[in-house]
Amino acid sequence: MREVLNTPLFGIALSIVAFKIGIWANKKLKNPLANPLIIAMALIVILLLVFDIPLDSYEKGSSIISLFLAPVTAVLALSIYRQRALLKDSLLPVMMGTFAGALASLFSIKWTCGLLGLDSVVLSSLMSKSVTTPIAIALTEQFGGIPALTVASTVISGALGNLLAPVLAKMFFISDPVAHGVGIGSCSHALGTSKALEIGEVEGAMSSIAISLSGIFTVLLAPLFFL
């Protein structure tokens, strides 16, 4: 049994099976809260804990899946290209909306850490939670944060965006697809964008461009919060 756990196939197979179960549950329950991604993560965590499987055994396979994160993010450029005419007409609102989103994210983390009395290491680890993982980790390492904490906060932000994007749009009466897409991409990066692509092609394209712009604005603005 241990020999099976020590192969990369274990982590890959477990991830695929857990996600398939999540998709099945989502179709059966027909509830937006039954998110396949959330269900898959919960199943994997429970399985590892119940059977006392070392995290290193799972990561041998999951790390291979993680290699596809950057290429998949780059493929989002296709949806942007298809909506290039709309993007050209809405370029200024998209840029200003993404800038406001990045600024709001940084301010909220700075304020919350100060309110809770958290130290600068935690602040450095959480500042980039709303941008895509490669950029978030690079910023954390630059400011002396904890990469593991950054990854955890980034995953939580993305998962919440994926889960709550449709609900929040209804709650705040957001009907414009451009605004909806920019909001999703600005706060929940690729995980949220996967939901935006399900909602509509325009939302997916705007969320995709917001990922890139949010990363750029966060890189430029984050150092100002450590002065």
Rank of each mutant, 00 (worst) to 15 (best):
V4N: 09
L9E: 13
I12T: 02
K20T: 14
K27W: 07
K28M: 12
N35V: 10
L37D: 02
M41R: 07
I44A: 10
V45M: 14
L47P: 10
L48Y: 08
L49S: 14
L69I: 14
A70V: 14
A74T: 13
L78E: 10
S79Y: 03
Y81W: 10
R82D: 00
Q83A: 04
A85W: 13
L86T: 12
K88C: 13
K88G: 12
K88T: 15
L91P: 01
P93A: 09
A100K: 08
A102R: 09
L103H: 08
F107C: 11
I109A: 06
W111T: 15
L116E: 06
L118N: 07
D119G: 12
S120V: 13
V121T: 12
S124M: 09
L126I: 06
M127Y: 04
S130F: 03
V131C: 08
V131G: 00
T132G: 00
T133R: 03
L139M: 14
T140P: 01
E141Q: 15
F143N: 06
F143S: 07
I146P: 02
A148T: 15
A148I: 15
L149N: 07
V151N: 00
I156P: 10
G161R: 02
L164E: 01
I174E: 05
T193C: 00
S194T: 05
K195M: 10
A196S: 15
E201A: 10
A205F: 06
I209D: 00
I209L: 15
L213D: 02
T218C: 09
L221S: 09
A222T: 11
A222E: 00
L224V: 13
F225D: 06
